[in-house]
Every structure is written in structure tokens, then in C-alpha cells.
């Protein structure tokens, strides 16, 4: 009887996991036409390329659409403006950005201001110089870090 109980519980747990995985996969496979109006509005910069995105890319973008209503109008405008570039970044670049963003958030206000100024300075460097710096920097993450 104990063996039956264990098998039954394992089966129910496995089925729950399978169904939840299928639900997530279905959500990520949704086409542009199947998105809601609210999702269309947020993800509009990606309209042309949505159906070419991979499921895991769509999933991340849908997460952005989910969090979008919780933001102020000015932040929402920034998201809309930066979304296209974000979708075109490589997984390496996105993972780098996430880790760096977490580190940035932990900084003091003075340090954040300093970094903003530094970014402006860096933007003024010649493109060839920035390309050289990028080429000389090793990738910080392995394939295991990417999604």
C-alpha cells in the first residue's frame, strides 16, 4: 500500500510538472496575432520581427510586457525606446547587461551619477577605439549562464 501511495504521489507530481511546462511553452510560442492589445502596445517596436523570435526570446519579451504597467509613464517611454535594440542583443550581451544592472542598482547615488558621466565620456570616444576595447575584453559568461 505504501508503495502504491508513493507511485501515485510521484505520478501526480510528474504530471503537474509536465502540464506547467507545457503551459509555459505554449505561452512562449504565441504568434504576434495571438497577443493581447496590451501586449501589442508594449511590444509594438518588435511587431515586424516577433514571429521570427525564438520561444525563449518571446518569453523574455512577454515578461517585459507583464511588468510594463507597473512602471511610471517616463519609464514606460524608455522601455519602448530601448526595446528594439534590446531584442537585437546577443544572449551574451543581455546576460552581461543583467549582471551589470544588478551591480549598478547596488551603488550609491554618487557612484551612479559618476557612472552616468563616464558613459557620456565613453560615448565620445572614436568608434574604432571602442571597438578595440570590446575586442580586447573576454566574454564574462559561459553558455551555461545564457537562456
Amino acid at each position: 500500500m505504501a508503495g502504491f501511495q508513493l507511485r501515485f504521489k510521484s505520478t501526480v507530481l510528474a504530471l503537474a510538472l509536465v502540464f506547467s511546462s507545457l503551459a509555459i511553452a505554449d505561452e512562449a510560442n504565441v504568434t504576434w496575432a495571438e497577443l493581447s492589445d496590451a501586449q501589442h502596445q508594449v511590444l509594438n517596436p518588435l511587431a515586424a520581427e516577433w514571429d521570427t523570435l525564438r520561444p525563449w526570446q518571446r518569453e523574455k519579451m512577454l515578461d517585459i510586457a507583464r511588468d510594463y504597467p507597473k512602471m511610471s509613464a517616463s519609464k514606460q517611454a524608455l522601455v519602448t525606446k530601448r526595446l528594439s535594440n534590446w531584442s537585437r542583443m546577443t544572449p551574451y550581451e543581455r546576460e552581461n547587461a543583467r549582471k551589470r544592472h544588478q551591480q549598478f542598482q547596488a551603488l550609491s547615488a554618487d557612484k551612479k551619477n559618476e557612472l552616468r558621466k563616464k558613459w557620456q565620456e565613453y560615448q565620445k570616444l572614436p568608434e574604432s577605439e571602442r571597438a578595440r576595447l570590446r575586442a580586447e575584453s573576454p566574454d564574462a559568461y559561459t553558455d551555461a549562464d545564457l537562456n
Binding site: 542583443m89 549598478f104 563616464k118 564574462a140
Partner: peptide, 15 residues
């Protein structure tokens, strides 16, 4: 994406 710095700033290894 809505952060003070654009995502490129975080992702740019050169920076």
C-alpha cells in the same frame, strides 16, 4: 530597460 543607463552601457564590454 528603464534604468538610468541604457542597456548598451551595461552590455558593452569595452565600457
Amino acid at each position: 530597460l528603464a534604468s538610468d543607463l541604457p542597456p548598451e552601457a551595461y552590455a558593452d564590454k569595452g565600457f
